[in-house]
């Protein structure tokens, strides 16, 4: 098994990485899609607008799994960071509820469309910022006692802002990759995808300057990320002229996403907690996963011939 999935908790880490990547696909569609619908008025924007609540539902559902697995890998760190941010962290839930209903309002009302989208985007930006903040705080154990004593509810280290820039760029590219499959007018989306990669690259340089480092076996994943992102960008440049390039862009984009999640986790792989003891039920989960995937595939097939409302 390759690093970092070769340790005792490799299976859980693999599930965490896979489900976080899945969550990122939906979350990216929602955040960048909301911004797109705000900025553009065209057929793609109309289509995206009707899909946003569904995609947010999928994003939240997909997000539950990495939330579960991170508690197995970094239980103490995750709980401590939750508690340090306290009520401010809990605010992500009402923010998501407000954002969710905002998307429904934007879908159903022309009159309230713009204000609902702005409000939803603000809510999602707050959630993205809070998650990045929590991620940073989880690894800042030497500072925990001082943060608690001072009653701080915000944590901003040098890596937070560049991390958000990387995220914003990646979300734009990911959104373009999903949206492009339901349209033939892909020129604008290709421009967004390429620009997104550019923003991510600038953010990554900033992040590196701020102290983010990847060493040892994690470098292989960094090279994979760089290579996949380069192929993805090159494919996007061809997408407006050749439909088949979208397959390449999607494949390379998926590889880049998975590699990016591993690179994101790399600095804290050494911090993963040992197994807390024997537990059963893995077979039930494996069976449920296979049956669940089959059921979802059947649903997609069942509704495919039916054009969406």
């Amino acid at each position: 098994m390759i690093w970092p999935f070769d340790g005792d908790r490799g299976g859980v880490l693999a599930l965490f990485v896979a489900t976080l990547a899945l969550h990122a696909v939906f979350a990216s569609y929602v955040v960048a899609g909301t911004a797109y619908v705000l900025a553009r008025k065209n057929a793609i924007a109309d289509e995206v607008r009707t899909r946003l609540p569904f995609m947010l539902g999928c994003g939240i559902t997909a997000g539950v799994a990495p939330l579960l697995f991170v508690q197995l890998l970094h239980q103490k760190r995750f709980y401590t960071a939750n508690l340090l941010l306290g009520p401010r962290w809990l605010a992500v839930v009402p923010a998501l509820i407000a954002g969710f209903y905002g998307l429904y309002l934007a879908k159903s009302s022309e009159r309230w469309r713009r204000i609902a989208l702005v409000a939803s985007l603000a809510c999602f930006a707050f959630v993205a910022w809070s998650w990045s903040e929590l991620h940073e705080l989880m690894s800042a154990d030497p500072e925990w006692a001082a943060i608690y004593g001072a009653g701080e509810r915000f944590y901003a280290d040098a890596q937070l802002a560049p991390r958000l820039v990387v995220l914003a760029g990646a979300m734009a590219t990911q959104f373009a990759a999903v949206a492009a499959w339901s349209t033939t007018e892909r020129r604008g989306l290709a421009a967004i995808a390429v620009a997104g990669r550019g923003v991510s690259l600038l953010g990554a340089l900033w992040l590196w300057h701020a102290g983010f480092a990847v060493d040892g076996p994690a470098r292989g994943w960094l090279y994979l990320l760089g290579g996949a992102a380069a192929i993805d960008t090159a494919a996007w440049l061809v997408v407006p002229r050749r439909d088949r390039a979208l397959h390449v862009a999607t494949g390379a984009g998926a590889a880049a996403l998975l590699a990016a999640v591993v690179v994101r986790e790399a600095p804290r792989v050494a911090l993963i907690e040992p197994d807390h003891g024997p537990s059963g039920g893995v077979l039930a989960f494996a069976i449920a996963l296979v049956l669940g995937a089959a059921a979802i595939a059947w649903v997609i097939r069942a509704i495919a011939p039916s054009p969406p409302r």
Binding site: L15, T61, V64, A65, L68, F69, Q71, L72, Q75, H276, G277, S279, G280, G281, V282, A284, F285, A288, L289, L291, G292
Partner: peptide
């Protein structure tokens, strides 16, 4: 979670 994480994950699939 330590005790039931796989069943919790099963619930997530459902």
């Amino acid at each position: 979670l330590d005790e039931f994480h796989w069943l919790w994950a099963t619930e997530w699939v459902c």
